[in-house]
Design a protein around this nucleic acid. Structure first.
Lengths: 143, 143
DNA sequence: TTAAATTAAATTGCGTACAATTAAATTGTA
DNA sequence: TACAATTTAATTGTACGCAATTTAATTTAA
């Protein structure tokens, strides 16, 4: 039995890439109810934790750059979920903050992780291990 | 210590999504040499295994639909790496086949998995476990 | 202290991704 | 046989995702 390193099945990246996409798809019906895309959802998640951050910090947390975030944040601003204001201390920085409406959306969103969890049928042991390895990988590969 | 289910760090999907993106980025310098994007690369990988398939089968393997594949395959056709012809038996099917140039590209590509592997510093045990769990997850979540 | 270097966001351009729809070919069935 | 249902790609429209460049503000250093 020969190991073919160019076989899709033998890659590390491909199952990661495919799993991520399939899992993101599972969020869609739930996120549709909040009128959010997945990327908007994780952005809101960071804001629900921190209330107010600049684009750079937000981007570091999300592994996204301003090319992705700028239009996305303008969208969220149009929806009335966040405000975008320049920092008083440093005009280069754009501060993104939750509005009252943005804060309130958190309650509806809080049901989502449980609903997603119910879709995934893996032993807890695997879930914990997966978490652990992914964070290890992200620490060295990311950034 | 309270478990916050809306914390980014506590999600399963987010590290998967972020890891996949970061890992795909690592391919870029190597793929640039072949003038391929990551999606084009995995498409070629399936073709190097099977030589000739229709779009539906290709899409099933790659977890991609015709909306993504149609323009991508036209690009590969323009580059002279594949041909696109309707099936004689069933005109609905489009058969994608490697050209000689497409076949030859495999040799250059064969160095990539090793180069990527060298970038990832995880114990073999973790790599094997990650593989195993991801395939398990893909089997139930994918499709 | 001002000119060069750096930093932060925005912009541009290209390539995915995918839902929804359309168009054409084939299959199933009355 | 004919017509409805199904199947396969292509198309359309929206939203990322990122490299590369640009613009404006700030910091560094000569």
């Amino acid at each position: 039995m020969e190991w073919n390193p160019l076989k899709l099945e033998n890659q590390l990246c491909f199952p990661l890439y495919a799993c991520a996409k399939e899992l993101v798809k599972k969020y869609k019906p739930f996120l549709d109810e909040l009128n959010l895309t997945y990327t908007q959802y994780i952005t809101m998640m960071v804001l629900w934790e921190h209330n107010s951050l600049n684009v750079k910090t937000l981007g570091k947390r999300l592994y996204l750059d301003s090319g992705t975030l700028t239009p996305l944040l303008k969208k969220l601003e149009n929806e009335g979920l966040v405000t975008r204001t320049r920092s008083a201390g440093d005009e280069r920085e754009l501060i993104v903050s939750l509005t009252e409406k943005g804060v309130q959306l958190r309650e509806k969103a809080s049901e989502i992780p449980g609903k997603i969890g119910a879709c995934i049928d893996l032993p807890t042991e695997d879930l914990v291990k997966l978490h652990e390895i992914l964070h290890k990988l992200l620490k060295q590969a990311g950034g």
